[in-house]
Nucleic acid binder design. Sequence first.
DNA 1: CTGAAAGCGCTTACAG
DNA 2: CTGAAAGCGCTTACAG
Lengths: 358, 358
Amino acid sequence: MYIFSQSKRFDCTHGGVTKMATIYDVAKESGFSLATVSNVVNGGPRPVRPETRRRILEAVERLDYHPNAVARDLARQRTQTIGIVFGVVDLSEIVINAYSAAVLQAVMSVAAETGYNLTHLMPPWRGASRSLRQYRDGRTDGLLIVAPPTDSDMLPALASIGVPVVAVSAGRQQASVPSVDVDDAYGAKLAMQHLLDLGHRRIAHITGHLNLESAQVRLQTYRECMAAANLEAPEEYQRQGYYSPESGADQMRRLLTLPHPPTALFAANDEIAVGAIETAREMGVEIPRCLSIVAVDDRPVASLITPALTTLHQPFDAVGREAARRLVAAIQGQPAAVETLLFQPELVVRDSTAPPCS
Amino acid sequence: MYIFSQSKRFDCTHGGVTKMATIYDVAKESGFSLATVSNVVNGGPRPVRPETRRRILEAVERLDYHPNAVARDLARQRTQTIGIVFGVVDLSEIVINAYSAAVLQAVMSVAAETGYNLTHLMPPWRGASRSLRQYRDGRTDGLLIVAPPTDSDMLPALASIGVPVVAVSAGRQQASVPSVDVDDAYGAKLAMQHLLDLGHRRIAHITGHLNLESAQVRLQTYRECMAAANLEAPEEYQRQGYYSPESGADQMRRLLTLPHPPTALFAANDEIAVGAIETAREMGVEIPRCLSIVAVDDRPVASLITPALTTLHQPFDAVGREAARRLVAAIQGQPAAVETLLFQPELVVRDSTAPPCS
DNA sequence: CTGAAAGCGCTTACAG
DNA sequence: CTGAAAGCGCTTACAG
């Protein structure tokens, strides 16, 4: 029977207020010292007489002793925990966002495999002077920064304090910390080349969040490819989206009501393409006959939607796993070169692209 | 200047190895006591002379002092952290799984709003005797258990040790701890009733992981509804799936090659339905003309796929948020009744269901 | 093989 | 308004 208040734990057997057993209790109960109890509980490193071990383990059992991880972490000066920070604009998009989900997924796997815990650092970055404190508060052995905003001092600040850090999708900011990334410029080139090869000349682009590196690179590559092909990329063909279906639907509508609508769209991600397809359907524009769409990410939706999307397959699983592995290596003291590891995306041609209709 | 080894942090300015400043350093540097420094750094609760505060803050600045959260947590005996545990079978499905992603999403929002950190408890539950220790190691103030396996002693064990716990999707196990859930039986009834109302009599069911409560309830409700309608539910109409597109595709193939194939399918979730649709398309079975499908979850894919899925909308966001709120309330000492809060799903009729083709 | 003691970096009554 | 001291629950040289 429990009685309650605050954070105390009551012990039914006594009906009184009891604390959880500590290592002191086990030492007293078993008649051995703290050092020996600690050693037995941790399974080493010193040798222990079997009889000693037995008596201590019995005391542990009897008292239902559970070591306190916080005390252990303080004494050991490490937590076996890696912190993950999502640099996306809005917290509400973190997991929904298929990209973040894939990376988180991969990181969790590696953490589980390597015996690390994973904790989310929740508060958004508000500048080095205000946020640095929270990010180096001793709760994590290292930090994984996913898609840091381009306009913040996060990466350089983190790099300067000597905490193990690995960035994912940091783009040009990678200069300051080791990072893992997909070769976005190369991917965007593949996508554009595909449309150009099909014979498209009026190609539009709907961007992602422009304060994310990936969105900037895709936009810039779009412009470069158009220029290299001697094609015009009028302002009204370059629409700002937000990596969401809504923004895709919205901007597609504007593109299709232009005096000279494009014959092809390079969408900054699958979700934008999903929205664009919806709008095209509503407006009776046939895909791919009258409008080709190439996107980026190859999330599950890409092959499920009709028409199935031609899109860049991004190896996010590999990115997440490799980033986590590098972070763990850095935490364990292996010297980490400040370099960027680039994975190459692949173009997956499905049903949303075709030559322009005359 | 400090000298070190081990978890070294390098100070560029000296080119040597330095430790981070501690509260002792600030006390010495400012000339005030630990208590006063602590008080200033924490912004209270005692009154402080402005001049004192100024001098301490200056010292903090000069030494670039950052409080150590682990030490603070140990002293305060709480961590402002909630632990989240996913009881699904396989870690590799945690995030990919749209359901878990939605709940995680909601929990993160509430955690951020209420000033709690979120950490994933990674190691799978391996029985109370082996796992309880990790789950009450002082690193978290409370636990959120998502979809605990039905065949484990996790919930009762956790309940017995007096740690604040809230379960999500625990089904009948909820007896032992407060829980938040979707009314699965009610939802399954809605789905089955929809098919029955359309005139279907040969209705099949592809289940989810049968060691998850939700899958069991859906299967049982399927049987009850069939029985109540005086219909046969032959063994071969009850196929075991795993909440995945692959299992849906697989089992659909077996159903369609039966001598008397069903005219309708109740799929335990959207993903199974996605696989089933794929198989039906491959085998030339038109949906909904020759086969109706009703599913569960209403994840984004449901409205994106063709044909758009008739499915149960599950209020996962509300579930996740409410669960997190309850946990925070319990942590903060508000008495929590051991009760289950049920949210009602709603049937969303789209294009995958129709009357049977004669 | 085992123990005594110092230390990890904070917080918080208690006393003034 | 401020300080001295004990305490949070572990780990780990050091000594035997």
